[in-house]
Design a protein around this nucleic acid. Structure first.
Length: 635
RNA sequence: GGGCGCGUUGUCUAGUCUGGAUAGGGCGCCAGCCUUCGAAGUUGGAUGUCGCAGGUUCGAAUCCUGCCGCGCCCGCCA
């Protein structure tokens, strides 16, 4: 019996690498780099281009090198049960795996690990903090905010699956200009009596304020006054603001929960302003030679970071980045640096916490609260901020200043998970101008649910409403999440209804459907006892292609985690790699489904195919869970 | 002015970091497959100067240089 593995593909790969390394007398690292997937499975399951790199130093043609060693290669391969044969084609070494043994290893492993298949420990004992989506508590989420939230949530899932202790943080800016504008307005309008969702109500109110604001200097002055009063927590303005922000945030959370997105912590700007963290940070900064209070020039009185100590910025005309203004107040960069120091545990946790609310997943989300209890978030090894790529420069400033302060390791471990914005045809989303109206995340989910409901109705006319509504909801959520994740984050999206809500082809319902089909087969065979299960008879092409894909799931998640590397503009997160994997896996199951009858097959074949269906079902379900796409049994 | 990202078929896009075998998909279009585990499925077909021009290499969508188009960023703002 073949051993089981939490990562079957890695097991196979290592086996192949070792073989090639021995035969070609090259280190395993070098061989590993030469391994690739052949473009066509008729050319093998794995291939190596090692001969190309050896040609020069061995003064021989790649083809000759390969042919010379072929007999030895064949002899070694014969020893390994996982390898069926090795062939050469030109300079390529093509490796063909043993179908039966692969099936046994893979299916056996999945059935053994079940709900944890795909989890690995490469990044264990490390803590990751993910901040997302940080929407101002003054408006409903528009579809661009959903992109942030869905990317952040899925990133967190992936980090969790590869071994990190991953914590979800949201940042609530309850002291911004937008809040002051709304408070100014709210202090003069009647309390709303209608049942408009509160974040939507505020969003519309905010659009109204803009016109007044732009056309009246006296109004601008009044709002600035409100802004000042908000900093005094005992003022009526601040008290109204606390109420408004809480109510708005709860309304926004409803949207978040619809998408299956939950948080562990919220850090509020008002808490940052009053808990003492800024004073601590300022003192710490001034102890550094590179953070100084300027005495003269345009920026006299400001506390600034001297960027010229960093090579990249040494030629700047004005290398001083302001952290605290001449009136002593913080800039965004200043506060961000303080917060980043807190995230890494460099500043001891200065916050007090209270429960914001209990979420539908039964977990409570904690908020920073000046009236709360002392807490300790602890240290994090890596910090990821999911923010639009427009903020690449400000984010880079924060990380650079960490470096200047002497925390270069923490700077390296600070990641800006950058994504491009979602736009409409010819229009940007703007809170000010109300271009989000009609494109809120709630609107999109509602519309998606409505369309899904029509499709569910067509296929399940006899089911009850509860069933139809539930499935429509699951399909809608899946479609929206998949749409956001399947677009490479560094690509701008133009939101078009027919694309976002297309339920055919490369989309979530296809994947959910493949799971439902597998589920159906399993239901029909439920309770059957199997003796002498022989997985090695799963050797047909459709079966083998499915087995191979299942084997690669753990490695796919790891590859995404490993490729979270810093670039000039931010850290790339290839969420689309997992959606593509899920689609490919579902596609191979569809092909298997069409060409390999399960329930009608001969008893021994039937038993092994049932095991394969079960392994597929577990793998695709785990993959959907990572993507946050609902797993559907019937649709 | 400086910097960053994007440019692949009618259309949307994967692949680019780490060069390798006929550039994969989806939608749309054309022609098949439901008395057989659910057709939200599947099989086959047509459609490409990988923005342009050079260069490096045995080999370039991928690396280098220059250019073009689109978007974005460079405040004691927020």
């Amino acid at each position: 019996m073949t051993e089981s593995s939490t990562n079957p593909w890695k097991t196979v790969r290592q086996s192949v690498v070792k073989m090639l390394s021995d035969v070609f007398c090259v280190s395993q690292d070098v061989v590993a780099l030469s391994i690739e997937k052949p473009p066509d499975s008729a050319l093998g399951d794995l291939a190596s281009t090692i001969a190309f790199s050896l040609a020069k130093e061995r003064k021989n043609s790649p083809v000759a090198i390969v042919n010379e060693l072929l007999p030895k290669l064949e002899a070694v391969a014969a020893e390994d049960p996982l390898i069926k044969e090795v062939k050469t084609k030109g300079p390529y070494v093509n490796i063909f795996l043993d179908h039966g043994k692969m099936a046994e290893l893979t299916v056996g492993s999945v059935l053994k690990y079940a709900g944890t298949y795909g989890r690995s420990e490469e990044f264990k004992n490390q803590r990751a903090l993910i901040e997302s989506p940080a929407v101002n508590p003054s408006k409903p989420w528009h579809i661009g905010h959903a992109r942030n939230a869905i990317l952040g949530d899925t990133l967190c899932n992936i980090l969790d699956w590869v071994g990190y202790d991953a914590v979800r943080l949201d940042y609530i800016n309850d002291l911004g200009l937008q809040i002051a504008q709304l408070i100014w307005k709210l202090m003069q309008v009647e309390e709303d009596g209608d049942d408009t969702k509160y974040d939507h109500y505020l969003g519309h109110l905010y659009v109204q304020v803009q016109e007044t604001f732009d056309n009246s200097e006296s109004v601008q002055e009044e709002i600035r006054e409100v802004s000042r009063k908000l900093e005094d927590l005992e003022s009526p303005e601040a008290k109204l603001s606390a109420k408004m922000v809480t109510r708005c945030l709860k309304a926004q959370c409803e949207t978040s929960y619809r998408l299956g997105i939950y948080h562990d912590y919220q850090v509020w700007e008002s808490a940052i302003a009053h808990c003492g963290i800024l004073e601590i940070a300022q003192k710490m900064m001034l102890e550094s030679d590179n953070i100084i209070r300027l005495d003269e020039g345009e920026k006299a009185g400001c506390i600034v970071a001297d960027l010229s100590v960093i090579d990249e910025f040494k030629d700047m005309k004005d290398p001083y980045k302001i952290l605290f203004r001449s009136d002593g107040t913080r800039t965004y960069t200043g506060a961000d640096v303080a917060l980043q120091l807190w995230k890494f545990g460099i500043i001891d946790d200065p916050f007090k916490y209270s429960i914001f609310e209990k979420q539908p997943n039964d977990q409570t989300v904690m908020r920073t609260d000046l009236q709360g209890k002392k807490g300790n978030l602890g240290k994090f090894d890596i910090v990821m901020n999911v923010i639009g790529s427009r903020q690449a420069h400000p984010q880079k400033m924060v990380y650079t200043i960490l470096d200047i302060l002497g925390y270069s390791k923490e700077s390296d471990n600070s990641h800006h998970i950058a994504y491009e914005f979602v736009g409409l045809e010819n229009v940007d989303f703007s809170g000010r101008h109300g271009t989000w109206i009609g494109y809120t995340t709630d609107d999109v989910l509602d519309k998606a649910t409505e369309l899904a409901r029509v499709e569910v109705e067509k296929r399940n006319p006899d089911e009850n409403d509860a069933f139809k509504n539930n499935v429509a909801n699951q399909v809608a959520i899946g479609a929206v999440r998949y749409f956001m994740l399947n677009a490479s984050p560094d690509r701008q999206i133009t939101f078009r209804w027919n694309e976002a809500l297309d339920f055919n082809g490369d989309a979530a319902p296809y994947i959910q459907y493949s799971h439902a089909r597998a589920q159906r087969i399993m239901e029909k065979a439920e309770g059957e006892s199997v003796s002498n299960l022989d997985l090695t008879i799963l050797s047909g092409d459709a079966e083998f292609e499915l087995v191979k894909a299942i084997a690669q799931f753990p490695e796919e998640l790891l590859e995404v985690a490993r490729s979270l590397k810093k670039n000039v503009w931010g850290t790339s997160f290839t969420s689309n790699r997992i959606t593509a994997y899920a689609y490919g896996l579902a596609n191979l199951f569809s092909k298997f489904y069409d060409s390999c009858p399960v329930l009608k097959a001969e008893p021994d074949v039937r038993a092994s195919r049932l095991a394969l269906v079960s392994a597929f079902k577990m793998t695709i379900a785990n993959c959907l869970i990572v993507l946050g796409i609902p797993v559907v049994n019937r649709m």
